[in-house]
Amino acid sequence: MQYNVSFSALTRTALIMLCLTGLTISATYAEEDVTDIAAAEINPNYFEYKENFSVKRLFASRCSWCHQGYGLKAADGPRLSGSTKSKEKIIEQIAYGKSPMPGFRKQLKPWQIEALADYIKALPDVAL
């Protein structure tokens, strides 16, 4: 069964601005936490769903039991940074799980799952 996700409706202009902003943030935050950089790129995409949305806060609340270091460190679950899976595959795995990973389709809203997938794809290929 295919999982239906309501994708956020970003305008072309917003996408371009975010890309540019992302480049700027990456350069500016060279000494900063890479998870902050990834989250800063993703969070504005979802403000229309929740004011002051924080994808790292969502990640900590639902994913941290198995994925340490906001996804940078392998533990009970694998390291997520550097994932070669497509965004769609990541969405599917978050939604349906892959035992022992639980499925979150009943726990998270579609846009929250998409935000987590975007965050994972935005993480650079680095490990703690």
Binding site: A60, S61, R62, S64, W65, Q68, G69, K73, P102, F104
Partner: peptide
């Protein structure tokens, strides 16, 4: 560990509910 203010889930929802991310 970084402790965060997690979103309160719905009552009796059975959602995963943590308030932190960590690295051993």
């Amino acid at each position: 560990i970084e402790v965060v203010n997690p979103e309160r889930p719905d009552d009796f929802s059975g959602q995963a509910y943590f308030g932190a991310s960590w690295t051993s």
